[in-house]
Protein backbone atom coordinates (compact mmCIF):
# COMPACT_ATOMS: atom_id res chain seq x y z
CA UNK A 1 0.00 0.00 0.00
CA UNK A 2 1.17 3.50 -0.79
CA UNK A 3 -0.52 5.98 1.48
CA UNK A 4 0.12 9.68 1.48
CA UNK A 5 -1.73 12.02 3.80
CA UNK A 6 -1.81 15.78 3.74
CA UNK A 7 1.20 16.18 1.45
CA UNK A 8 2.51 19.71 1.21
CA UNK A 9 5.45 20.69 -0.99
CA UNK A 10 7.13 24.05 -1.35
CA UNK A 11 9.49 24.66 -4.25
CA UNK A 12 11.36 27.93 -4.16
CA UNK A 13 8.95 30.35 -2.52
CA UNK A 14 5.86 28.74 -4.03
CA UNK A 15 3.60 26.18 -2.47
CA UNK A 16 3.09 23.54 -5.14
CA UNK A 17 1.03 20.87 -3.36
CA UNK A 18 -1.67 21.98 -0.93
CA UNK A 19 -2.09 19.14 1.53
CA UNK A 20 -3.31 16.42 -0.78
CA UNK A 21 -3.85 12.78 0.03
CA UNK A 22 -3.49 9.68 -2.07
CA UNK A 23 -3.78 5.94 -1.67
CA UNK A 24 -2.66 3.28 -4.12
CA UNK A 25 -2.79 -0.47 -3.74
CA UNK A 26 -0.45 -3.08 -5.17
CA UNK A 27 -2.15 -5.15 -7.83
CA UNK A 28 -3.57 -2.03 -9.43
CA UNK A 29 -2.47 0.56 -11.96
CA UNK A 30 -3.02 3.97 -10.45
CA UNK A 31 -2.87 6.85 -12.92
CA UNK A 32 -2.29 10.45 -11.95
CA UNK A 33 -3.90 12.90 -14.37
CA UNK A 34 -3.91 16.67 -14.48
CA UNK A 35 -3.04 19.66 -16.63
CA UNK A 36 0.55 20.87 -17.11
CA UNK A 37 1.86 22.31 -13.90
CA UNK A 38 -0.87 20.78 -11.74
CA UNK A 39 1.75 19.03 -9.61
CA UNK A 40 1.85 15.44 -10.93
CA UNK A 41 5.63 15.21 -11.14
CA UNK A 42 5.99 16.99 -7.82
CA UNK A 43 3.61 14.53 -6.18
CA UNK A 44 5.58 11.62 -7.58
CA UNK A 45 8.84 13.16 -6.38
CA UNK A 46 7.33 13.72 -2.95
CA UNK A 47 6.30 10.10 -2.51
CA UNK A 48 9.65 8.82 -3.83
CA UNK A 49 11.46 11.04 -1.35
CA UNK A 50 13.13 13.32 -3.90
CA UNK A 51 11.75 16.59 -2.58
CA UNK A 52 11.16 17.57 1.04
CA UNK A 53 7.45 17.22 1.75
CA UNK A 54 5.22 17.85 4.73
CA UNK A 55 2.70 15.20 5.66
CA UNK A 56 2.72 11.48 6.20
CA UNK A 57 3.93 9.03 3.55
CA UNK A 58 3.97 5.26 3.95
CA UNK A 59 5.13 2.76 1.36
CA UNK A 60 4.02 -0.62 2.68
CA UNK A 61 4.24 0.77 6.17
CA UNK A 62 7.65 2.44 5.86
CA UNK A 63 8.30 6.13 5.31
CA UNK A 64 10.41 6.26 2.12
CA UNK A 65 12.12 9.37 3.48
CA UNK A 66 13.48 7.34 6.39
CA UNK A 67 14.54 4.18 4.55
CA UNK A 68 18.17 3.86 3.59
CA UNK A 69 18.68 4.66 -0.10
CA UNK A 70 19.60 1.09 -1.05
CA UNK A 71 16.67 -0.37 0.91
CA UNK A 72 14.29 1.94 -0.88
CA UNK A 73 15.93 1.03 -4.20
CA UNK A 74 14.88 -2.59 -3.72
CA UNK A 75 11.25 -1.63 -3.16
CA UNK A 76 10.62 0.81 -5.94
CA UNK A 77 12.02 2.01 -9.24
CA UNK A 78 11.39 5.39 -10.81
CA UNK A 79 11.11 6.41 -14.43
CA UNK A 80 11.60 10.17 -14.52
CA UNK A 81 9.89 12.50 -16.97
CA UNK A 82 13.24 13.61 -18.35
CA UNK A 83 16.54 11.74 -18.43
CA UNK A 84 20.00 12.72 -19.56
CA UNK A 85 23.04 10.53 -19.62
CA UNK A 86 26.45 12.08 -19.08
CA UNK A 87 28.83 9.49 -20.53
CA UNK A 88 28.82 7.10 -23.49
CA UNK A 89 27.37 4.01 -21.80
CA UNK A 90 26.03 1.23 -23.97
CA UNK A 91 22.35 0.35 -23.77
CA UNK A 92 23.21 -2.81 -21.85
CA UNK A 93 25.32 -0.88 -19.36
CA UNK A 94 22.50 1.58 -18.68
CA UNK A 95 19.95 -1.16 -18.01
CA UNK A 96 22.48 -3.09 -15.94
CA UNK A 97 22.61 -0.12 -13.55
CA UNK A 98 19.04 -1.03 -12.62
CA UNK A 99 19.84 -4.70 -12.08
CA UNK A 100 22.89 -3.79 -9.99
CA UNK A 101 20.81 -1.46 -7.84
CA UNK A 102 18.76 -4.54 -6.97
CA UNK A 103 21.91 -6.33 -5.83
CA UNK A 104 22.51 -8.44 -8.92
CA UNK A 105 26.13 -8.72 -10.02
CA UNK A 106 28.20 -10.05 -12.88
CA UNK A 107 26.56 -12.33 -15.42
CA UNK A 108 23.25 -12.38 -13.54
CA UNK A 109 22.98 -8.60 -13.77
CA UNK A 110 23.75 -8.69 -17.48
CA UNK A 111 21.21 -11.47 -18.04
CA UNK A 112 18.48 -9.53 -16.27
CA UNK A 113 19.37 -6.42 -18.26
CA UNK A 114 19.01 -8.38 -21.49
CA UNK A 115 15.65 -9.77 -20.40
CA UNK A 116 14.41 -6.29 -19.50
CA UNK A 117 15.52 -4.98 -22.88
CA UNK A 118 13.67 -7.80 -24.63
CA UNK A 119 10.58 -6.87 -22.59
CA UNK A 120 10.55 -3.36 -24.07
CA UNK A 121 11.18 -4.67 -27.59
CA UNK A 122 14.83 -3.60 -27.67
CA UNK A 123 16.55 -6.98 -28.01
CA UNK A 124 19.55 -6.49 -30.27
CA UNK A 125 20.18 -2.93 -29.06
CA UNK A 126 22.51 -4.01 -26.23
CA UNK A 127 25.73 -2.88 -27.91
CA UNK A 128 24.46 0.47 -29.17
CA UNK A 129 25.48 3.67 -27.40
CA UNK A 130 22.54 5.10 -25.44
CA UNK A 131 23.32 8.62 -26.61
CA UNK A 132 22.94 7.55 -30.23
CA UNK A 133 19.36 6.26 -29.85
CA UNK A 134 16.17 8.10 -30.82
CA UNK A 135 14.10 9.79 -28.13
CA UNK A 136 11.52 7.02 -27.96
CA UNK A 137 14.19 4.33 -27.89
CA UNK A 138 15.93 6.12 -25.04
CA UNK A 139 12.64 6.30 -23.14
CA UNK A 140 12.20 2.54 -23.52
CA UNK A 141 15.76 1.90 -22.35
CA UNK A 142 14.99 3.95 -19.24
CA UNK A 143 11.86 1.88 -18.66
CA UNK A 144 13.92 -1.29 -19.04
CA UNK A 145 16.35 0.12 -16.48
CA UNK A 146 13.50 0.67 -14.03
CA UNK A 147 12.08 -2.80 -14.74
CA UNK A 148 15.48 -4.42 -14.16
CA UNK A 149 15.60 -2.76 -10.75
CA UNK A 150 12.28 -4.19 -9.52
CA UNK A 151 12.18 -7.21 -11.82
CA UNK A 152 10.08 -9.44 -9.58
CA UNK A 153 6.80 -7.66 -8.76
CA UNK A 154 6.85 -9.22 -5.30
CA UNK A 155 9.88 -9.36 -3.03
CA UNK A 156 10.56 -10.68 0.44
CA UNK A 157 9.82 -7.22 1.87
CA UNK A 158 6.45 -7.08 0.12
CA UNK A 159 5.24 -5.80 -3.22
CA UNK A 160 7.57 -3.76 -5.40
CA UNK A 161 6.57 -0.51 -7.05
CA UNK A 162 7.03 1.20 -10.37
CA UNK A 163 6.71 4.98 -10.38
CA UNK A 164 6.38 6.10 -13.99
CA UNK A 165 6.31 9.78 -14.97
CA UNK A 166 4.74 9.98 -18.45
CA UNK A 167 6.05 6.59 -19.59
CA UNK A 168 4.45 6.82 -23.05
CA UNK A 169 4.98 10.50 -23.84
CA UNK A 170 7.49 9.97 -26.64
CA UNK A 171 6.38 6.56 -27.92
CA UNK A 172 4.64 5.50 -31.11
CA UNK A 173 1.16 4.03 -30.74
CA UNK A 174 2.23 0.38 -30.74
CA UNK A 175 4.89 0.94 -28.11
CA UNK A 176 2.46 3.03 -26.06
CA UNK A 177 0.23 -0.02 -25.92
CA UNK A 178 3.15 -2.27 -25.15
CA UNK A 179 4.39 -0.13 -22.27
CA UNK A 180 0.91 0.12 -20.77
CA UNK A 181 0.57 -3.65 -21.04
CA UNK A 182 3.89 -4.07 -19.23
CA UNK A 183 2.55 -1.85 -16.46
CA UNK A 184 -0.76 -3.73 -16.29
CA UNK A 185 1.07 -7.10 -16.20
CA UNK A 186 3.31 -5.86 -13.43
CA UNK A 187 0.25 -4.94 -11.38
CA UNK A 188 -1.52 -8.20 -12.20
CA UNK A 189 1.47 -10.08 -10.77
CA UNK A 190 1.13 -8.25 -7.49
CA UNK A 191 3.35 -5.20 -7.99
CA UNK A 192 2.24 -1.62 -7.59
CA UNK A 193 2.20 0.83 -10.50
CA UNK A 194 1.73 4.57 -10.30
CA UNK A 195 1.85 6.32 -13.64
CA UNK A 196 1.53 9.98 -14.55
CA UNK A 197 -0.32 10.24 -17.86
CA UNK A 198 -1.66 12.78 -20.32
CA UNK A 199 -3.34 10.34 -22.71
CA UNK A 200 -6.90 10.00 -21.45
CA UNK A 201 -7.92 7.13 -23.74
CA UNK A 202 -4.93 5.02 -22.69
CA UNK A 203 -5.71 5.90 -19.10
CA UNK A 204 -9.29 4.75 -19.57
CA UNK A 205 -8.00 1.51 -21.10
CA UNK A 206 -5.40 0.57 -18.51
CA UNK A 207 -5.98 2.39 -15.22
CA UNK A 208 -7.71 0.71 -12.32
CA UNK A 209 -7.87 3.93 -10.35
CA UNK A 210 -7.37 7.54 -11.32
CA UNK A 211 -6.29 10.55 -9.30
CA UNK A 212 -7.11 13.81 -11.06
CA UNK A 213 -5.02 16.78 -9.93
CA UNK A 214 -5.85 20.43 -10.34
CA UNK A 215 -3.50 23.18 -9.18
CA UNK A 216 -1.87 21.12 -6.47
CA UNK A 217 -5.09 19.62 -5.12
CA UNK A 218 -7.01 16.41 -5.79
CA UNK A 219 -10.00 17.28 -7.98
CA UNK A 220 -11.29 13.72 -8.12
CA UNK A 221 -10.14 10.25 -7.12
CA UNK A 222 -11.65 6.82 -7.62
CA UNK A 223 -12.21 3.93 -10.03
CA UNK A 224 -11.40 4.92 -13.59
CA UNK A 225 -14.93 5.07 -14.96
CA UNK A 226 -16.03 7.34 -12.12
CA UNK A 227 -13.26 9.89 -12.64
CA UNK A 228 -13.14 9.92 -16.46
CA UNK A 229 -16.31 11.94 -17.00
CA UNK A 230 -16.83 14.58 -19.64
CA UNK A 231 -18.04 17.41 -17.42
CA UNK A 232 -15.31 16.96 -14.83
CA UNK A 233 -12.50 16.64 -17.38
CA UNK A 234 -13.79 19.68 -19.26
CA UNK A 235 -13.77 21.75 -16.08
CA UNK A 236 -10.27 20.67 -14.97
CA UNK A 237 -8.58 20.81 -18.38
CA UNK A 238 -10.55 23.82 -19.61
CA UNK A 239 -11.57 22.45 -22.98
CA UNK A 240 -14.43 20.40 -24.39
CA UNK A 241 -13.93 16.67 -23.99
CA UNK A 242 -16.25 13.94 -25.23
CA UNK A 243 -16.39 10.63 -23.39
CA UNK A 244 -18.12 7.86 -25.33
CA UNK A 245 -18.32 4.10 -25.11
CA UNK A 246 -17.54 1.90 -28.09
CA UNK A 247 -16.37 -1.57 -29.09
CA UNK A 248 -16.85 -5.00 -27.71
CA UNK A 249 -16.12 -5.32 -24.85
CA UNK A 250 -17.17 -1.69 -24.39
CA UNK A 251 -14.32 0.77 -23.89
CA UNK A 252 -14.22 4.43 -22.91
CA UNK A 253 -13.11 6.67 -25.76
CA UNK A 254 -11.99 10.14 -24.71
CA UNK A 255 -11.79 12.79 -27.43
CA UNK A 256 -10.89 16.46 -27.09
CA UNK A 257 -13.22 18.62 -29.17
CA UNK A 258 -12.12 21.91 -30.80
CA UNK A 259 -14.23 24.91 -29.79
CA UNK A 260 -14.81 26.18 -33.35
CA UNK A 261 -16.15 23.01 -34.86
CA UNK A 262 -17.14 24.57 -38.16
CA UNK A 263 -13.65 25.67 -39.10
CA UNK A 264 -11.20 22.83 -38.65
CA UNK A 265 -12.73 19.62 -37.40
CA UNK A 266 -16.00 19.85 -39.28
CA UNK A 267 -14.33 20.53 -42.60
CA UNK A 268 -11.88 17.68 -42.16
CA UNK A 269 -14.69 15.26 -41.31
CA UNK A 270 -16.22 16.05 -44.67
CA UNK A 271 -18.66 18.77 -43.54
Amino acid sequence: MLEAHDITVHLGKRRILHGLSLAAAPGEVTVILGPNGSGKTTLLRAVTGDVPAGGRIALDGADPRRLRPWELARRRAVLAQFARLAFPFTVLEVVRLGAEAAGEIGAAAAARARAALARVDLAGYEGRLYQELSGGEQARVQLARALAQVWEPKGPEGPRWLFLDEPVASLDVAHQLQVMEIAADYARQGGGVIAVMHDLTLTALFADRVVLLEAGRVAAEGPTAEVIRADRLARVYGCRIDVTTAGDPPRLIVTPVPERRGAAAGARAGG
Partner: peptide
Protein backbone atom coordinates in the same frame (compact mmCIF):
# COMPACT_ATOMS: atom_id res chain seq x y z
CA UNK B 1 27.92 5.29 -12.48
CA UNK B 2 24.47 6.11 -11.12
CA UNK B 3 25.26 9.80 -11.10
CA UNK B 4 25.75 9.65 -14.88
CA UNK B 5 21.94 9.48 -15.04
CA UNK B 6 21.56 12.56 -12.84
CA UNK B 7 21.33 13.08 -9.10
CA UNK B 8 17.68 12.13 -8.80
CA UNK B 9 18.11 8.94 -10.83
CA UNK B 10 21.20 8.04 -8.80
CA UNK B 11 19.17 8.37 -5.62
CA UNK B 12 16.47 6.18 -7.16
CA UNK B 13 19.14 3.56 -7.79
CA UNK B 14 19.98 3.58 -4.09
CA UNK B 15 23.06 5.79 -4.15
CA UNK B 16 23.51 7.91 -0.99
Amino acid sequence: NGLALGEAAAAHLGVP
